[in-house]
Design a protein around this nucleic acid. Structure first.
Lengths: 203, 203
DNA sequence: CGGCGACTAGAACGAACGCTCTATCCAGAG
DNA sequence: CTCTGGATAGAGCGTTCGTTCTAGTCGCCG
């Protein structure tokens, strides 16, 4: 994986533009709801370019989109966990940020990995596997933070499962309900749950 | 809502067969990934019948499918909550049951409401609204149980948000990871969270 | 028996799908 | 300069999409 990594401009490499566009569109419309022609059009690329960079077709492109979503959320997660020594407080801040992002997109931009992978379990194994790897990485990041904060390794890994699952579920619930409440409650309750492992309890 | 309600046989009314088939297919393949012709074929109905019963087309059919999923899960939820006075224990039993169902379907059958609604936020408002109503109903069922168990109403409604969100997220995580672990951990942690509200704590 | 609404049946439409194909462009190596 | 191979470009393939439409079947009420 030796990418030139021109990291954000819209004048980024064609391949980069295609993946970003695919990720954004699949986040809103799902994998099946997004057409390759729509992606190429909105990315300012042509069909030829898409199949040049992704000879595996839509499935390979979807996999790349999931991996991009993985990287982006991993970075966000690390950012919030690093900014605050107390994991509970970090999670509250993270849920608030997720809720804000959701609201600002008019409740359209949920988790890109979730939106893309749902409905592809059968028939697109590459995407399903990339999503599984994403969830595993996020869990590892959370578990690492908990260990650093003094948790036993077993407890940390166990808790990380629920932290990630609850974040995913709450983001989905917030999106569907078009309300920040589920995410806000999730943050508060995760903090409370973490506090039961010997830390200070603060409602 | 005056349905004749022939409740399960495959010789049920045509309309019933169509909705059930639509719900099952959308649960596996998502809304966009499921074609009306596939539904009519597998339901043993014809295209004419589908449009006779659902003149609103695919969107109306999708909405009906979401409502069916709503009813089914509401019933399951009530069943587990009624079978056990302690809400925490009931939730542990529920997550175990969900995990078992998921495994038995070879990790194909996630939450029918979630699978159908994801990716339809824009462009199919009826489906999104039906899903919002489903989540709200489930929350109300959980909150009712918590109140019965002695929780303050505000705490109960607050907790219900996280219970439903965590169940959704854990089912998704279990499906993607093809493992019962996320659901099992979610059940245990929800029980622990509930126990922090004054009940007996039992890990 | 005639008539009527509910339901079944499936051909056909235009649009969009994922993908293949050939043709062209162009920077750098020789 | 020529040559080459990565990258761009888009017409066109066969298929499927959601939907519409006309025709036919059936049971029931008069």
């Amino acid at each position: 994986m030796k990418t030139k990594a021109p990291h954000d401009l819209e004048t980024a490499g064609t391949r980069e533009r295609i993946v970003r566009t695919a990720s954004r569109l699949m986040q809103r419309q799902g994998y099946e709801g997004t057409g390759i022609k729509q992606i190429s059009r909105e990315a300012g690329a042509t069909l030829g370019s898409v199949y040049h960079f992704f000879p595996g077709g839509k499935q390979e492109l979807g996999t790349a989109a999931v991996r991009l979503g993985d990287e982006e959320f991993t970075e966000l997660l690390r950012e919030f966990l690093d900014a605050e020594p107390d994991p509970a407080k970090a999670l509250v801040a993270l849920t608030a940020s997720l809720a804000q992002g959701l609201r600002e997109s008019d409740w359209l931009d949920g988790c890109p990995v979730t939106s893309t992978v749902v409905g592809t379990a059968a028939g697109a194994p590459g995407i399903q596997q990339a999503a599984a790897e994403a969830f595993a990485r996020w869990r590892a990041v959370v578990a690492g933070k908990l260990v650093t904060a003094g948790f036993a390794e077993a407890d940390a890994e166990d808790l990380a499962h629920t932290v990630i699952a609850t974040l995913e579920g709450a983001e989905l619930a917030s999106q569907v309900a078009r309300s920040e409440t589920p995410l806000e409650a999730a943050g508060r309750h995760l903090a409370r749950l973490i506090a039961t492992y010997g830390g200070s309890v603060r409602t």
